[in-house]
Design a protein around this nucleic acid. Structure first.
Lengths: 129, 129
DNA sequence: CTAACTTATACGCTTTGACGAATATGTTGC
DNA sequence: GCAACATATTCGTCAAAGCGTATAAGTTAG
């Protein structure tokens, strides 16, 4: 599929860029996205749906939880631009801060215990080996 | 300046993508953009203003005529993505057709004589040497 | 089945932006 | 100055999309 307009529209929103940035490395549970971005859950969910419609992410159900991950578009040009964009985002301070908060999720027990056995982010699982 | 949101918003419109595609090689007069895209002049002008605000193009006045050209953003990441985007656009048929119509501007005298001594596109000038 | 929980969607409201038509601005030649 | 021309901007309208609130849908535990 070749639809640059739809593709770039999907990237033209700060919240969606932050979501993509957090999904950059590996799949991540919606509950973490809500906590880290400190935005309402319906808002996060709507933006995830937008990204799904644009073919940029896919979801996997895991019991009550949904995990989202980036999927590279079949179009080679689009995939290249998406990869480039993720690298670009990673240069910005606020995007690094978001990622940092994700990796520290394991260090704020009060908050995450409240999420009652929410699945740990992959990064945390790797660290705790 | 680092503002991915503004950057991608500018790319999230078909008319603006077509304009960038036509400006890809060298600067081009507004009158050709209007002719080739077959869109109203105010529409073209508004989209050019949008691209100018986003820092993607600059204008040069030449008497009555305005010539627009792409300027690479100072941000290295943005510049790279813009270059890739232009290359990507160039793979699409309709974008190739637009470029083709530009290079054939010299072959439809009736239409372009009506433009009374409009400055020739650079590509035409190069061909006629 | 029911209660608790996570995520998705529907609704109403507001903002953004795209559009055509009309008009303003800037330039040239007389 | 004025007329003709190229381009820019303004205005009113409409559609797209953002948001929060409320609610629906799907899952698990009991």
């Amino acid at each position: 599929m070749f639809n640059p307009e739809l593709f770039f529209k999907a990237l033209g929103d700060r919240t969606r860029l932050r979501l993509l940035n957090l999904m950059g490395e590996q799949e991540i549970c919606v509950c973490y996205l809500v906590e880290i971005l400190e935005q309402g859950q319906p808002k996060i969910s709507r933006h995830l749906a937008y990204l799904r419609r644009a073919g940029m992410v896919e979801a996997r159900r895991d019991g009550k939880w949904m995990h989202y991950r980036i999927v590279m578009p079949p179009d080679k040009g689009a995939a290249q631009i998406l990869r480039q964009t993720l690298a670009w985002l990673n240069e910005e301070r606020s995007m690094q801060a978001d990622r940092s908060r994700l990796s520290k999720a394991c260090c704020s027990p009060a908050k995450y215990v409240a999420l009652q056995s929410a699945p740990l982010p992959v990064s945390v699982m790797l660290e705790s080996r």
